[in-house]
């Protein structure tokens, strides 16, 4: 899958949203052992809303577009790597919440508020690497893929180790 859309906020700022297949090696290894088809799709949202904060209506548009893209793709698992450095636009930095944690929470709320958009049962999953300054992946998957997620986490870690050894 490789899809992209530009969404314009009510204040006229442009957001670029894309969905693309990724981690094929992770997918292939698990499919071979578990015989359950699935496809990991990476979500990317780029924006620099200078004219005002992104409203819930805009987030709803983003969620609706994503759900439209994946609703007829039963094998899809969505991955979002939460940026841990870039500050959140229009939000005062919080001592208690790191940017990655904020983005992760935002994704949870965004999809939970749009439950009626999809006919499937979806689960929010957070994959956290490290403790102090964690790297966070937000994962959205159907109930039917629940048994795969710990395998994906393990395989992702092992794939990252292999990539590091090759470099």
């Amino acid at each position: 899958m490789n899809k992209q859309i530009d969404i314009i906020t009510a204040k006229g700022d442009k957001l670029k949203v894309s969905l693309s297949s990724c981690y094929e090696s992770v997918t292939d290894t698990i499919i071979q052992s578990r015989h359950i088809p699935f496809d990991i799709i990476e979500i990317s949202i780029e924006g620099n809303p200078t004219n005002g904060p992104v409203t819930i209506d805009t987030f709803r548009k983003i969620a609706k577009w994503m759900v439209d893209c994946i609703d007829k793709e039963p094998d899809t698992i969505l991955f979002y790597f939460c940026d841990c450095n870039t500050p959140i636009p229009n939000i005062r930095p919080s001592k208690d919440l790191l940017p990655a944690q904020y983005r992760n929470n935002l994704f949870s709320r965004l999809f939970q508020r749009n439950v009626t958009l999809s006919s499937d049962m979806w689960v929010d999953e957070t994959l956290v690497f490290g403790e102090e300054n964690p790297y966070i992946f937000h994962i959205l998957h159907r109930e039917s893929h629940s048994t795969l997620i710990s395998d994906i986490a393990r395989e992702l870690e092992s794939t990252l180790n292999i990539i590091a050894e090759q470099k």
């Binding site: 949870s108 749009n114 439950v115 979806w122 689960v123 929010d124 490290g130 986490a153």
Partner: peptide
């Protein structure tokens, strides 16, 4: 969507 949230922690990832 069910709204269920799960967390997987990999506390000590390798360097």
């Amino acid at each position: 969507m069910s709204g269920r949230t799960e967390i997987i922690n990999i506390k000590n990832p390798s360097d």
